[in-house]
């Protein structure tokens, strides 16, 4: 088992308020890790530290160590744009660009200079859409606006967009919370599919979802990591009372 991302003693502050308390958590390559916990427990904040999306927020301060393949991602030599090329992200609400489906997918490869040949770009778009299981549905209307798709399709478009830049890790921040059950199940299948090629870290509200798609689960509460381990173990015999309370629905 190879670790992809390793976090060590991570503390995150918003101004004076501490959002993450000293978390150390490792993520295995080509596995799905689910982060669960009640609202406001810091799981999204934690996720956004992994590709430094928190940089945008002025008052946010990150302490500790996160490394991707042994490289400190907060070190000065790392360029954040370069990092995000390696760690893709899918957001809670589908957020395709108000551009064509093709341009949505091609945008990342374009700014990173993958190719300047039309045929190669076509290929990248096609394979990305195929991997996201969307190609068959949209192949005849690649010039349509990305925003004209249904919610589930939009989210798959966002996944295609994320994998078009060939990341190693994909972060998913409650990717199904805005979708209906059918669209959700399609995305879940997709996640299982994608873990062959990518390390996936998913934040989810739904415990069933975590149980269905993840190999590993970490339970967060009030900015603390309470417990982590194999999904089967967390959901059957957790070590901590709090975890047990949460997964049995006693709070959350």
């Amino acid at each position: 088992m190879v670790n992809s991302i390793i976090t060590k003693n991570l503390n995150v502050y918003y101004g004076d308020q501490q959002a993450i308390h000293n978390i150390s958590l490792d993520f295995l390559k080509n596995k799905v890790t689910a982060l669960i916990g009640p609202s406001g427990c810091g799981k999204s904040t934690f996720l956004r530290c992994l590709n430094r999306m928190n940089d945008v927020i002025d008052i946010c301060r990150v302490e500790g160590n996160i490394s991707l393949n042994g490289m400190d991602i907060y070190s000065k030599e790392i360029e954040v744009e370069h990092l995000r090329e390696k760690i893709g992200m899918v957001f809670q609400k589908p957020n395709p660009f108000p551009k064509s489906i093709y341009d949505n997918v091609a945008y990342g490869p374009r700014i990173h200079g993958f190719t300047d040949k039309k045929e190669e770009m076509d290929l990248i778009v096609e394979t990305s859409l195929k991997k996201a299981g969307l190609f068959e549905e949209v192949k005849d209307r690649l010039d349509d606006m990305g925003t004209s798709l249904s919610g589930g399709q939009q989210q798959r478009l966002c996944i295609a967009r994320a994998i078009a830049i060939k990341p190693e890790v994909i972060l998913m921040d409650e990717p199904c919370s805005a979708l209906d059950p059918i669209a959700t199940s399609i995305i879940e299948e997709l996640i299982t599919d994608l873990k062959k090629s990518y390390t996936i870290i998913i934040v989810t509200h739904s415990m069933q979802q975590a149980a269905r798609v993840s190999d590993k689960t970490a339970f967060f509460h009030l900015g603390n990591l309470i417990e982590e381990g194999d999904t089967s173990k967390i959901f059957t015999k957790p070590d901590h009372q709090k975890t047990n309370d949460y997964i049995t629905g006693r709070f959350g």
Partner: peptide, 9 residues
């Protein structure tokens, strides 16, 4: 929209 583009690098 900004987040989406930022996340793509």
């Amino acid at each position: 929209i900004r987040e989406a583009a930022l996340a793509l690098g």
